[in-house]
Structures are given as C-alpha cells and as structure tokens.
C-alpha cells in the first residue's frame, strides 16, 4: 500500500507546470489527490512524475456571477459547498456536493480534479454534464474550453490531454423558472452511490443525469414522457452493472424509483423559486 517511486516537482508558476507536463508524457498533475493517491498507493497507477499544483498562485477560489459559477483548480469541494453565493446562482452544486464522500475528503479534494478524474460513479461530472458546463484546460499551446459534452470519452477517461492542466470549470446558473434536484442511494453515508440521479427541469424540458449506472456520466433528455415512465425510458441509455455492492437489477430498480422522485422534486424546486 505504498506508491511506486516517482519524481516530484512543485512549480511556482503555471507556465513552469505546463512546461514540465509537456516534457514528460507520463507525468500526472497532483491537486487534491483524494482519488489519485489511493490509485498510487494501490499501484493501479504509477506515473513517472507528479506535478504538484498546490503551490500555484491564482488557482484558488470560487467566482460567482449572474451567468454562473467558475471554480478554479485548487478550490476544494468544501470551498464550493461553503459558498452561499454559488448555491444561490446554481443550487444543484450544493445539493450534489453534500453527497461527495465525507467532509474530511471534501476538505482536500478539488471539484475540478474530480471533474477530470472522470469517474462515472462521482457526483460532479454528472452535474457538469447535466448543466452543460465546461472545463478550461491550459497547455504550452494555450488555453481551450472543453464543453462537458466533449469531456467524457470513456471509463475514467476524459479528453484532457496529458500536457494540459484543467485550470477551472464553469457551471451555468439556473435559469429563471427552472428547478433542480439530486438524490443518491448509498450503502453507507459517504460511500460511492449505488445509483445517483440529478434532474434539471425547465417548463416542459426534463433532463436527468445518472451516476453509477453507466461507464461514463450520462444525461438523458426525458421531455414529453410521463413522469412515472421516465426511469424505464432512461434505462435504454444506461448500463447498470452487477458488483459486490448491488445487482444490476437492483440498480435498475433504483433508476426507476429515483428518476420519478427526483424529477418531481425538481418541479417542486422550480415552484418554490417562483
């Protein structure tokens, strides 16, 4: 349970970090490390080098405007969750963040790191996908914006290149009249969800995001379907699987039950905001 040896740098500027990454295709970025360090300790990953971005200036902070919430690379989950301004502009953030692991993990783990770790069992990738957000990625070649729809390409695989640092993420604001809700079922509080559901409703438009029931974060447009049948319809786009924690059938059951429940809560949420 100890990591394999790796080289280590703690750059003082983003330019230095990007140059190091550009020169070593096998290097990885270390931000919060709450997913990366277990992978290293279990030797599921053995990068040649870690580029520790925790010393970089100007990558802290949560910036809230009327158009949405921008989360910088070193903002911890706890920082985003603690921002009342962020919760006011996009309430789904706090609803989902309260389900991310335990407070102790949220104190160190970063929201942007979780997004580009691209775990389909994690909450924030689904939230970003459902809201149609984006991630800004910097490299020595410049900075590009990756829309959420182009970010998730496979299990634990994002379209972020090895020489890029995800410097921030943008979560769009909740539109006037729209509503959101989030719920997940776990064996124990703070564990990975057996199934999690996030919903965004706006008039007749119903979009629902799913975690832990597919290989990649998945959003399904369920507009026009009776609410009791939405879960069944969503299952056509999902692949709930058997594992030690739950059977595929049970996960499919949770999709049906949670979809109806969460879409109804999203409509309640929308009514409550009028």
């Amino acid at each position: 349970m100890k990591p394999a040896p790796f080289a280590y740098t703690r750059p003082g500027s983003l330019a230095e970090a990007l140059a190091t990454l550009a020169g070593d295709p096998d290097a990885k970025v270390l931000a919060g490390g709450q997913s990366l360090v277990p992978l290293l300790s279990m030797r599921l990953a053995a990068p040649s080098a870690l580029v520790d971005i925790n010393g970089l200036p100007d990558l802290d902070g949560v910036t809230v405007t009327a158009s949405g919430v921008r989360v910088a690379a070193l903002a911890r989950h706890a920082d985003v969750l603690a921002s009342a301004e962020a919760a006011a502009v996009q309430p789904l953030l706090a609803m989902a963040l309260a389900n991310v692991a335990h407070p102790t993990i949220r104190n160190r783990g970063t929201t942007v790191g979780s997004l580009v770790h691209a775990d389909a069992a994690a909450e924030m990738p689904v939230v970003l996908s459902l809201l149609g957000g984006s991630v800004d990625a910097a490299s020595t070649a410049g900075t590009r914006t990756i829309p959420a729809a182009e970010l998730y390409v496979g299990p634990l695989q994002s379209s972020l290149r090895h020489d890029e640092v995800a410097v921030s993420a943008f979560f769009p604001a909740l539109a006037p009249g729209a509503g959101v809700a989030f719920e997940e079922i776990t064996r124990r509080q703070g564990d990975y969800a057996l199934c999690g559901v996030a919903a965004l409703v706006d008039g007749a438009s119903v979009k629902v995001g799913y975690l832990s029931v597919s290989d990649v974060p998945t959003v399904v447009d369920l507009s026009g379907i009776p609410v009791e049948e939405m879960g069944e319809a969503a299952l056509a786009h999902l692949e709930p699987a058997d594992d030690i924690h739950a059977t595929a059938d049970y996960r499919a059951h949770l999709v049906r039950v949670l979809t109806t429940r969460v879409v109804r809560s999203a409509y309640d949420d929308a009514r409550g905001r009028r």
């Binding site: 490390g33 360090v37 300790s41 520790d52 407070p103 993990i105």
Partner: peptide, 15 residues
C-alpha cells in the same frame, strides 16, 4: 491541516 480534518494517508509529506 490548518484546523481542517484531512486524511494523512492521502497527502504526501512533500506537499
């Protein structure tokens, strides 16, 4: 760490 609970097994000493 600065008063906030964190897992010391998920941090590197160098960091």
């Amino acid at each position: 760490v600065d008063g906030k609970p964190m897992r010391s097994c998920l941090l590197f000493a160098v960091s």
